[in-house]
């Protein structure tokens, strides 16, 4: 009974308590870069979720074999291998999306979320729960990126997942799909999230 509770808690933690990139301010680069549209954000989130789940599982199964002196280098090799696999799969099955995401797919290697979860969780816990932790953080990241992408796409272009949602008379705020829009959207979302946390009386996380 206790173990199922622990699994449930780990699963929930990634969705609110440490949802990236808001709570866990890691992996900011792709959340700024690929969120011009909801579809791109979603694609990036899924790619990262896949990598982080598998890498957590593999790293955690090898945690007693890898010498602690070379652990970071070993983690990077494992992660880079998984990222290459995802990159090739995306090129094969989702070619237009992989063209859109461009260099940000190989850049998952240096995404701090993956390495952070490996070092912070997978290195100390058994494989199954590490994979659940990876999955929950990955899903949390997907939700955040889709949200950011939706806001920028709806207000910046008047569309959502490529469908027209705003009326014809709506003047799109082009500023939001350009570079500055990304910073401002995430900044404001972060502010709202902090406000909500303070209102619920949770501990104030960002310093």
């Amino acid at each position: 009974m206790r173990s199922t509770q622990k699994f449930g808690e780990t699963l929930k933690a990634g969705l609110w308590k440490r949802i990236p990139p808001f709570r866990l301010v890691l992996g900011l680069c792709p959340s700024l870069a690929v969120t011009q549209s909801a579809e791109n954000g979603f694609g990036m989130g899924v790619a990262l979720a896949l990598v982080v789940t598998l890498s957590s599982g593999i790293i955690s199964s090898l945690r007693n074999i890898i010498p602690s002196k070379v652990r970071i280098a070993s983690y990077i090799v494992i992660i880079a291998t998984l990222v290459s696999i995802v990159e090739i799969l995306m090129k094969a099955f989702f070619f237009p999306l992989s063209e859109q995401l461009g260099i940000y797919i190989p850049l998952i290697v240096v995404n701090c979320i993956v390495l952070g979860r490996a070092e912070g969780f997978a290195a100390k816990n058994p494989p199954l729960i590490s994979m659940i932790d990876g999955l929950s953080v990955g899903v949390g990241y997907t939700i955040s990126l889709t949200l950011i992408g939706s806001i920028r796409e709806i207000f910046g272009k008047g569309e959502w997942f490529g469908m027209q949602v705003m009326g014809q008379s709506y003047e799109p705020m082009t500023f939001l799909v350009l570079a500055p829009g990304a910073f401002v959207t995430i900044g404001i979302l972060l502010g709202i999230q902090n406000l909500f946390s303070r209102w619920r009386g949770e501990k104030f996380v960002q310093g």
Binding site: V25, V184, G187, I188, L190, G191, N194, R198, Q206, G207
Partner: peptide, 10 residues
Amino acid sequence: SMQGTAIALI
């Protein structure tokens, strides 16, 4: 609520 990272991003 805007202190720290939030205002930095804006």
